[in-house]
Amino acid sequence: MYQEFKYLISDSVCAGLSPLSGDLFGKACPRFIDGFLVTIELLVLACGIGFFLAIGLTLARMSGRRPLAWPATALVYVFRGTPLLVQLWIIYFGFGSLGEDILGPILWSFFKNPWLVGLLVLTLNTSAYVSEIFRGGLANVDRGQLEAALSIGMPWLRAMRRIMLPQAIRIAWPAYGNELVLMMKGSALISTITVLDLMGQTRTVFARNFDLTTYLYAAILYLVLAGLITAFVNTIERRMQLSAGR
């Protein structure tokens, strides 16, 4: 149902573009747009889930409780210290090669699906970077506010959530916007684990026509996406400034 809906979108987009588009783009258009939608879908989910996961990670790291802080710190350290491509291949080709016998039916139904594995890795990767960005933001919020909140009896978690984090996120917002664009660029790597995102479709088209303009069409679509993300980030930034000024 949902899948058909996506196909309908790309078919209509391509039909709309057909009078304008050249020969090569016209033929490959549904592929490009199908891939474009997969890329958007993965980005929205990975960045959405990653945002909240990053908040959780940041709180865990700053909680001062070792059983919480250490795993969170280790996760951030490992995901920031290794290439995304390596993370993808360890989890897809590495863990995936263990098969159903070792992983069990529940885990296997997850690892079986390249799209889900891609989503998992992108989410963990972005949450590690975003957590570091939020931590940097928190360092710039006056600690006195936290102490004041604690001294009037507010629990630490609530003080962080209601007072410290909103300010930290506002401070860190431009850096967060950069990370969103970087994530979009990194998402192209999921084409190496058989997901047909925009990059995967592009490589498939190029594999048949060996025409370098194929890559240029893909570049234009990625630039459009970068523009959309920047516009989104700027809109939110303006709103935050407005509400902060009130």
């Binding site: 664009v181 660029k185 592009t202 890559y215 970068a226």
Partner: peptide, 16 residues
Amino acid sequence: FVRGVPEFLILLIVFF
């Protein structure tokens, strides 16, 4: 351009 296009794509364009 470079900051909006995946590194992977740029590398392939340069390579081919």
